[in-house]
Write a protein that binds this DNA or RNA. Structure first.
Lengths: 164, 164
DNA sequence: TAGCACATTGACGTGCGCGTTAACGTTGTT
DNA sequence: AACAACGTTAACGCGCACGTCAATGTGCTA
């Protein structure tokens, strides 16, 4: 078969996982080594098998790295809150006493809150920067208008980028 | 004198410049080496003297680095638009023909526009991430409420971070 | 003029985030 | 059984963004 319906239900080998996430195999192994993913399951021969959840996590790592420019260590920290969520999704019904559960959830909640606060700070600063840029553009346009009225007459059909 | 009213009008030596900007002397020299600043003026002996404009620029570099996580090369590019602004501020009245000026300004404007578009993309993605985090917190709170109603009764005065 | 804080260049070192190569094992097909 | 395609670990290398000496020169003060 040319098309690959290879491994069990949506589980991917490292090559395919790398393609899907647009990361390199080296990077996947590196992230595993650095504890950003819990080690994926292996085939009998030792080949890594990435679950859909693993893929999801890899995509979150990528997102965080591209977006925030954080170090992998920082990202590792941030993802620890995710882990609690995963533990919830998995078989937690029949687990230990509810006090522990609640405590863990509270920790995860607080961590997430701090992340949110941090993100809001960044967003605010970036918004401010954005406004500065916008102002500058208006100034430029002002100078250009004044120049073309006052001085030499020149057509000015500059290419524009839309700002939705 | 204990207080330092040292160099001429607001010009700072590298040590003080480093303090003001919260960067290291090494970093300042490195940024200069990499062309992020035009080389500052020197005293007779060769000591660097940073003008207020230099300080401003350093602070912008820092802001861009912290905020966006860009490489210094990227930042260098972004700052080239700033340079045009500076050229405007300086003696440009009696300069070359107005066609050149207008062309330069148009270039700067377009570069700035692209930066703005990029920033808006980032902002959008970050806002989306923010919403995800907020949703998660609500879910956590939901679980916690359900647990405390359904199961063990426990006081829950978790420390909160305000989100203005 | 001595002394001390501060600066200069130059060189080497460091941690991160991978890239690259080598030597070797596994899978699936023919 | 043979073969290509894919995977494994281990090790070295690299570019970036500086940190950290070392040897030397400068500025101000006493």
């Amino acid at each position: 078969m040319g098309e690959s319906t290879r491994c069990n239900e949506g589980y991917l080998q490292i090559g395919e996982a790398a393609e899907r996430t647009e990361l390199t195999q080296r990077t996947l192994r590196y992230y595993e080594e650095k504890g950003l993913l819990q080690p994926p399951t292996r085939m009998d021969g030792g080949f890594r098998l990435y679950s859909p959840d693993d893929i999801e996590r890899l995509e979150r790592v990528k997102q965080l790295k591209d977006l925030l420019g954080f170090s992998l260590a920082d990202i590792r920290e941030m993802l620890e809150a995710d882990d609690v969520k995963q533990e919830l999704k998995a078989g937690w019904r029949k687990d230990a006493d509810s006090g522990e559960k609640a405590a863990k959830i509270r920790v995860a909640r607080d961590v997430t809150l701090k992340q949110l606060a941090l993100l809001d700070q960044k967003l605010a600063k970036m918004a401010s920067l954005r406004d500065h840029l916008a102002e500058r553009i208006e100034k430029y346009d002002g100078w250009l208008r004044q120049w073309s009225e006052d001085g030499a007459p020149e057509a000015t059909p500059a290419g524009g980028a839309s700002v939705p």
